[in-house]
């Protein structure tokens, strides 16, 4: 049974539709990515899952609970990291974690969380004196202090420097190893590609694809590029008849083959059968970003 089920979610603010029609389900123990550019409806979608907003249509179930009706029960099993929320300026890091730990029936040890998130030295530092990255890490630690079954993290690495971002990714994988199902809202391709088991790509309030990162990339019919110099001349048709190949181009002695699927094996074995050796063979794998652009027509950087 899926941990989260979203079925035809619809949400509008006054006359503006934020989420048209979003459906997906999240399985236990996976890291599920919600990927889209800013304003695509990602945050509205997860806020409906969290019960912070009430949907105008469709249904949502989280661990068998209805976020609208079973708000109190849901709060105890859900860890939420909000995109923009602060703490009182003068509240200290250790106090904040102790405070939030007290809200939950069986919290984690705040001291261990401080260690894990690299905040132990900042225990007595006021929130107002933390750097952006430290605030972000505290916010993640607060989302986890309740020992949740599901953690929903919204743009968790925004504001972190590259090293801190990698550390955060490491920790998310650690959370998953602890048995927590993670929903990760992001517009960073690298993050989604590195962390997520499956990704829902959301664009203009609709889900336009759900797949593994590799699946999304493989779905590109001409995403891969193979470049080589043939040892002997050959006819383009030798390659263009292959189902994996989308196009063949020649630039002087160079051949560039575009295609999808297992392009490398298909091309090299076919060439071998025609006694052609591919010299200086290079394969350019498409990235998730290429897949995203192909799906939505634009990149996340607007």
């Amino acid at each position: 049974m899926p941990v989260i089920e979203v079925d035809h979610l619809h949400k509008r603010y006054r006359d503006q539709v934020a989420v048209h029609d979003v459906s997906f389900s999240v399985e236990e123990g996976e890291i599920f990515g919600v990927l889209g550019r800013n304003g695509a409806g990602k945050t509205t979608t997860v806020e409906c899952i969290e019960g912070l907003r009430s949907p105008d249509g469709g249904s949502i179930s989280v661990l068998g609970l209805d976020p609208g009706r079973d708000r109190a029960a849901l709060r105890r099993v859900l860890g939420i990291q909000l995109q923009a929320s602060e703490l009182p300026e003068k509240l200290r890091v250790g106090e904040a974690l102790e405070l939030y730990a007290s809200f939950y029936p069986s919290p984690l040890d705040p001291g261990e969380l401080l260690e894990r998130w690299g905040l132990a030295a900042k225990r007595d530092t006021a929130f107002g004196n933390l750097s952006g990255g430290q605030k972000q890490r505290l916010s993640i630690a607060l989302a986890l202090v309740g020992n949740p079954q599901v953690a929903i993290l919204d743009e968790l690495t925004t504001g972190l420097d590259p090293q801190a971002r990698r550390d955060a990714w490491e920790s998310i994988e650690q959370i998953r190893r602890g048995g927590v199902t993670v929903v990760l809202v992001t517009h960073f391709m690298e993050e989604a590609e590195r962390l997520c088991d499956r990704i829902a790509v959301i664009d203009a309030g609709r889900v336009i694809a759900i797949d593994t990162p590799a699946g999304l990339v493989a779905g590109l019919s001409d995403g891969q590029r193979l470049r080589f110099r043939p040892s002997v001349p050959f006819e383009d048709a030798v390659l263009t008849q292959l189902p994996e190949v989308a196009s063949v181009q020649r630039n002087g002695p160079q051949v560039e083959v575009r295609g999808g699927g297992d392009l490398l094996t298909a091309v090299t074995s076919t060439l071998a059968r025609h006694q052609v050796v591919a010299i200086d063979l290079r394969l350019e794998q498409p990235t998730l970003d290429d897949a995203f652009v192909a799906l939505t027509g634009r990149s996340t950087e607007n």
Binding site: M1, V3, E28, L63, G64, L65, V77, E98, L99, A101, S102, F103, Y104, S106, P107, L108, D109, P110, E112, N147, Q149, G178, G179, V180
Partner: peptide
């Protein structure tokens, strides 16, 4: 009932003060 059985075995637990008092 299924969700309750899905609860991960709790890691070492922390004794927290009462929520309202802590607040």
């Amino acid at each position: 009932t299924e969700t309750t059985t899905a609860t991960p075995t709790p890691t070492p637990q922390h004794r927290a003060p009462r929520p309202l008092r802590a607040l």
